[in-house]
Design a protein around this nucleic acid. Structure first.
Lengths: 130, 130
DNA sequence: TCTTGACCTGGAGTCAGCTCAAGGATTTAT
DNA sequence: ATAAATCCTTGAGCTGACTCCAGGTCAAGA
């Protein structure tokens, strides 16, 4: 699979794919004889994983670290797990925070309803009193 | 309340407070005779609101727009409500996405448990066969 | 064969959102 | 009364994460 196919398949810009690889977020992709990237299934898996984790807010730095550990093989399993746990916990806290803010927004929207009704009433009264 | 008190109270850096005001995220704060900012209760309320909304990911631009509408008075009530609804919907989608990724991370962590157990077993077998 | 489009690299540019620095006025503690 | 801390403004600098550009190579259709 060439780079533009991967780009289309996962909705990640070509420049970003190259950037991720350069930054070590994706293990080096195999090349054709002439030097063009040829993504394997596994490479695609990485692209999808990185896209997903980035969208959850994991930093480039964190993901680089994870891939780095991955490339060192089995002896980093525990470290990788702990990294994932730390990120999961961070994400969980973030989600809770956002849910609370969601509540707050909902409440605020409700009070806007009331304000708008009150405001219309006032306008109506004004009109009637003319 | 002076700027450093507000900064401490809400955990927003002084520079950021000035930046928010300059960018119109907070209505202009009243000054003392000599030009120092003197935050009212209401100003503090804005600071808290902006801090909260920023932490939920609302953009500077969006918040500027909201404060802008607010300062135009009652005739923008509906617009403000609609803005809040749009942001709430965006946030809700975001939260759902993040929950899904949380699931995925949890699953991945579980499989790491298994891998680690399998790996330890293998090591043990090696040691015994020596 | 020629040309057009996709790919390559290295490095510069961009954007949001702060954060810091310089130079000067004001307030507060001694 | 004076030194130290805090405030002010303007404008530059920084960080993370891309995104674009120039200049060159490669591949596939007319």
């Amino acid at each position: 699979m060439n780079i533009s196919e991967v780009s289309k398949k996962y909705g990640v810009p070509i420049d970003t794919l190259r950037y991720y690889e350069k930054e070590g977020l994706i293990p080096p992709v195999r090349r054709t004889e002439s030097g063009l990237r040829d993504y394997s299934e596994k490479d695609c898996g990485w692209v999808e994983f990185i896209k997903c984790m980035r969208s959850a807010g994991l930093s480039i730095e964190t993901l680089r670290e994870y891939i780095d550990l991955y490339q060192k093989g089995n002896r980093t399993l525990l470290k990788r797990k702990n990294l994932l746990i730390a990120e999961r916990d961070r994400l969980a806290r973030r989600v809770e925070e956002m849910q609370a803010i969601l509540q707050r927004l909902n409440y605020k929207i409700d009070t806007y309803e009331d304000k708008i009704v009150a405001c219309e009433k006032k306008l109506l009264q004004k009109r009637n009193s003319k």
